[in-house]
């Protein structure tokens, strides 16, 4: 549950990070969902969803659309990523019109999501708030690493792997986009925002390089 809720990082970066979800309710509307799932996928693709997937198959960054669609069952969980508020608005307009009867959920920065709902003339029903991280936080990785790992809510991305990818990009063995795809592939669900991840990696690597140059000059 709540696996898209605790994404972290600077707010401007998070404003480019939305998740969309299709959800069937056990015992109510969870039979023969494939035609409805296809409506969700068509709407998401029409507005350019950057990544999407089915936890039972895997993400679009790793599997072809046809492979995921072929494997849709009533147990599937279809969800994905948008990077712009305008996509959310258009997606919601389509899903409201299609009226599939399945639950629709959007995760994102609330000051972006609520105006998008208003523009799409959709009335929010309920909300799940993140009240932050508690406990022994001393053992957590740094904020930049967390902003990358928390985009996989099942926490399948090890901080050590983020470090490894950063190192590969620094050494020129991978581009930031390639590293971001490798990280996205850890996330079964397709909610990993590889576009935002690539931006974070580029920014971090560039800043480290600039620091190195500055210290050399000193």
């Amino acid at each position: 549950m709540t696996h898209s809720l605790h994404r972290s990082g600077p707010i401007e970066s998070q404003k480019k990070d939305f998740n969309w979800f299709m959800y069937q309710t056990k015992g109510v509307n969870d039979v023969n969902i494939k035609p409805k799932a296809l409506e969700f996928i068509a709407a998401a693709e029409a507005v350019g969803s950057e990544n999407w997937g089915d936890v039972k198959s895997g993400p679009r960054t790793q599997y072809k659309t046809e492979e995921i669609i072929d494997r849709i069952t009533d147990k599937s969980r279809i969800r994905g990523v948008f990077t712009k508020r305008e996509q959310v608005v258009e997606f919601l307009k389509i899903m409201k019109e299609k009226d599939t009867g399945l639950s629709v959920v959007i995760t994102g920065v609330l000051s972006e999501v609520l105006p998008a709902c208003e523009e799409a003339e959709v009335t929010p029903h309920s909300i799940n708030y993140s009240l932050g991280v508690w406990g022994k936080k001393d053992n957590l990785p740094d904020d930049t690493t967390l902003s990358i790992t928390t985009m996989c809510g099942h926490h399948m991305i090890p901080p050590k792997y983020v470090e490894h990818m950063m190192d590969q990009v620094k050494k020129g063995r991978l581009t930031a986009d390639e590293a971001a795809i490798k990280l996205a592939n850890f996330c079964y669900c397709g909610i990993y925002n590889q576009v935002r991840c690539s931006d974070i990696i580029s920014k971090t690597v560039n800043e480290a390089a600039e620091k190195e140059v500055a210290s050399t000059k000193e």
Partner: peptide, 24 residues
């Protein structure tokens, strides 16, 4: 939200919103 803030709990800016499109 204000009740939580009075308790010193900071509500984060990102949230998960159910749009009320499920039926019934």
């Amino acid at each position: 939200v204000p009740v939580l803030e009075d308790m010193g709990i900071r509500v984060r800016k990102n949230s998960k919103v159910n749009l009320g499109l499920g039926r019934p």
